[in-house]
Structure formats: C-alpha cells, structure tokens
Design a protein around this nucleic acid. Structure first.
Lengths: 235, 235
DNA sequence: ACTAAAAGCTATCAATTGATACATATTCGA
DNA sequence: TCGAATATGTATCAATTGATAGCTTTTAGT
C-alpha cells in the first residue's frame, strides 16, 4: 500500500489549495469542510483502505475530482483528517491536560491527584463514548493505532504520548511517588485502554449487558466503574 | 460489501470439498492447511476487505484458484478462519473455563475465586500478548469485533459471551455476591479490554515504555499490573 | 498399467477504485 | 463589464482484485 505524502502529491497537482483558500469564496470553503467531515466519518468507519473516495464524495455531496482539488488525493485527505482531529481533540482536552500538568509541577496532594485523574477519565469516557462527534474521532484514531498508518507519528507525539504521560504522572502522585515509574505508565495504559470495552468492542458490550446504548444512566454506570478503578489504585 | 455465504458460493462451484477431503490425499490436506494458516495471518493483519486473495495465495505458496477450490472464495475462507480460531481457542481455554464454571457451581470461596480470576487473566495475557500463534487469532478477532463482520455472531456466542460471563461470575463470587450483577459484567469487560493496551495498541505502548517487545520480564510486569487490578477489586 | 477423481495451474474477465485530462461555471477585483 | 483566479462537472484511464473457465498433472483404486 503506497501512500504518497500530501506534499508530494500536490507537486504533480495544479492549483490545489491544501490549506484554507486565500480569498474566502462563498461556496469554496464550504465544500472543503463538507469533504473533511464526510471523510472523517467514512475513514472512521472503514479505515484508510476500506474507505473509497466515491463514498466520501457522495456523502459530502461533491463530485470525485473535488477531493483531488482540495486535498491532492486520498492520502492527503487522510492526513488532513488526522490534523483536524488533532486540533479538535486538543481544543477539548487542552485545558484539562494543561491544568493537570501545572498542578503536577506545583505540589499536588495524592488525594487531589486522584480526584483529578477521576475527572480526566470521566471526561475521556464522555468524549469517546458519549455519542457526540468525538466518537468518530476516537474510531478514526483507534484504526490508526492498529494500522500504523501515515498519521501514526503525528497522533502519537501530539496526543497519545502526552495524554498517557499526564495520566501516569497523576497516578504516580496519587501513590505518593515523585516521578512516574514504568509501572505507573503501565497502569495508565491499562486504564485508558479499558475504555475500548465500550469503544471498539461496544457491540459486544451492549449485547452482553443487554443495553440499547451507552447513554444516560448506563454511561453513569460505566463512569462509576472507571472511578472505582481509580479509587482503588495502590490501595 | 457483498459477502456471499460459504454454502451459496459452493453451489455454483464444482467439486470443492469445504470440509476435509474424503480420501485423505497426500498433498491435498497439506495445501488446505497452508491456505488457512496464511489466511489467518493476512486477515488478522489487514482485515477482511484489506486482505487480498493474491496475498494469501502467495504466502501459502499456492495459486489463486486453490482458494476457490478449497473454500469457495474469499468469504468462505474468512468464515473457515473464524471457525478454526474458535476451535483452537476453545482447545486452549476449555479446561480453564470449565474448571471455573464447575467451581462456581460448587461453593467457591471469595479468595479462591479471586485467585482463579488472576490465573485466567494471566493465561489470557500469555495467549493474547505472548508472541505465540494465539496473537494472530486475537488480532483476527479484534478486527471482527470492530467490523461486525460475518463471523461476529459465531464468535460472540461461542467465545466472547461465555468468557466474559465466567469472568463476571468470578468477580461476583470474589465480592461475596451470589450472582453476577451488571456492575460485575462491566468490570469484567473493562478488565479484559484493558489487555488491548498491549494488543491493538501495542505500538503505542511499546514506544511509550521504550520497550523492544512485551516478552520475558516485561510481560511479567504487565501481568503484575493485571493481577494487582484483580487484587484490588472491591477493596 | 489404466481410469476416474482429485489437485493444481495459466490465462483471462468483469467490477471496483484512485486518479486525472479536459470542459464548463462561478466568483471577485479592476 | 471584463478577465483571471477559483471552483465544479463529465468522461475516462490504468491498476487492483475476486472470480472462474479450461487445461494439465497427480493420486488412488483396480
């Protein structure tokens, strides 16, 4: 599977404005946004290879060459999706992560660290499982984790590694340690990965629990279980 | 994506012996096994749609029509893989699961239940992460969980549901309950899903921990974290 | 050794898919 | 209003892919 880089692809292409078109035309940016939104959904549902450009174009309500025009091709569109997700995720999580980092740099008590970790996990659960648009982002990222695709490094450096590191730091502080040990990182990884029970494995989980969905009261049950796990860390 | 049923596919085909060929020819069964083995690996790595029949044929060292000859087509081969996995998994886990069930039916003490759950998790970790052939099976199943493909029902009924149910039963008993409550099932799901940190998300985990692999001493660290989680259940 | 069944192989087809050449339409600054 | 930049559309290509028709080779029973 050859995935040409977005830049490389656009060298052979003609006028394609990969970033936002300069002028701000009436319909131009609109089509670009619709394509990106459609691509997010289709890529999330089918992965890079499974998604077809025709599917995306149809869902976006544009014709096929529009994808090349705006993103240089399928690979460029995929990368643009990853960057879009990165931006949106950071917008949502930045305050919380920055707050946790600052608190860790200052003197955060073990109990405070534990409380913060609970909040982080609840927010993460809301985002990844809550039925909002972030659910699509999570599905996209989950595929990328498995496929080791073109966006892996980007998402790893900017999202996953910082996220796990903060969680590991909070765990370490909750246990009264000065810095995160490998065991803390393992616990952080296990904790975050357990969310996949209702993410990637949701069909199994819902069927097994005889739930129609994972909203409302049932979401509260999930969060309660997560909080309980945090509560018991190191005790 | 149209996936014809294996049987349907074989109606139009000619002499294809989907189950083991009658006679027991010298080379016949050998080729069939090689195809199945190759298909397991390729499907696990690329998913149903991502895998190509040519890839499988090449890895198996056979020509393309051999796939149709023995399995009726790509869809039939996929189903055969699922059944093969089911069989192999059950062979490995049956004793443990049956033992746990029997113990639950008899009077198992909370501490005994907890110890048994630890063993189950360690065995599961060895299978899913230990680098053996079962790792390929796990990858195959993980894709099926996400894609909700043709083998979903089969694997759910015969593998996932019984497995989670046993784990939930052990958790319930460990907590001194008489039967598994929904919260116990949730905990069981979270516990098992956390293994995906070193399954589907292994590249991320290894990079983050700066590990070359997850074997030997490092596997012990993972198991220790899992056992610790079980140890803290309900405490 | 002979025959029919079983197994294996080459060549090719039709459908799908990503890409793009090329024509047309729209927008906006002058 | 004119023209260049921008945007959208149609038609088509070449590569990939699953499938299979038809031929050859091997095997097992006699």
């Amino acid at each position: 599977m050859v995935r040409r880089d977005q830049e490389t692809a656009r060298v052979t292409a003609d006028p394609a404005p990969s970033s936002e078109p300069a002028g701000g035309y009436r319909k131009g940016g609109e089509a670009r946004r619709r394509i990106l939104e459609a691509a997010l959904q289709v890529f999330a549902a089918a992965g890079f290879k499974g998604a077809t450009t025709r599917q995306i174009a149809e869902l976006a309500g544009v014709n096929l060459p529009a994808l090349k025009y705006y993103f240089g091709g399928k690979a460029g569109l995929y990368l643009a999706c990853a960057e879009e997700i990165l931006g949106r995720y950071q917008t949502r999580m930045l305050d919380m992560v920055a707050g946790a980092r600052a608190a860790l740099d200052a003197d955060l008590s073990p109990d405070q660290a534990r409380a913060r970790l609970k909040t982080v996990m609840e927010t993460l659960a809301d985002m990844m499982l809550g039925g909002g648009e972030a659910e699509v982002w999570s599905a996209f990222m989950l595929r990328e984790v498995g496929e080791q695709g073109a966006a892996f490094d980007l998402l790893y450096e900017r999202l996953w590694a910082p996220g796990v590191e903060v969680a590991a730091g909070l765990i370490a502080r909750a246990l009264g340690e000065t810095a995160a040990r490998p065991a803390d990182r393992i616990q952080a990884l296990l904790l975050i990965s357990s969310l996949s029970a209702f993410g990637a494995a949701r069909p199994v989980a819902l069927k097994l629990l005889d739930w129609p969905d994972a909203r409302g009261e049932r979401m509260s049950d999930i969060k309660a279980a997560l909080v309980a796990q945090v509560d018991r860390l190191g005790r």
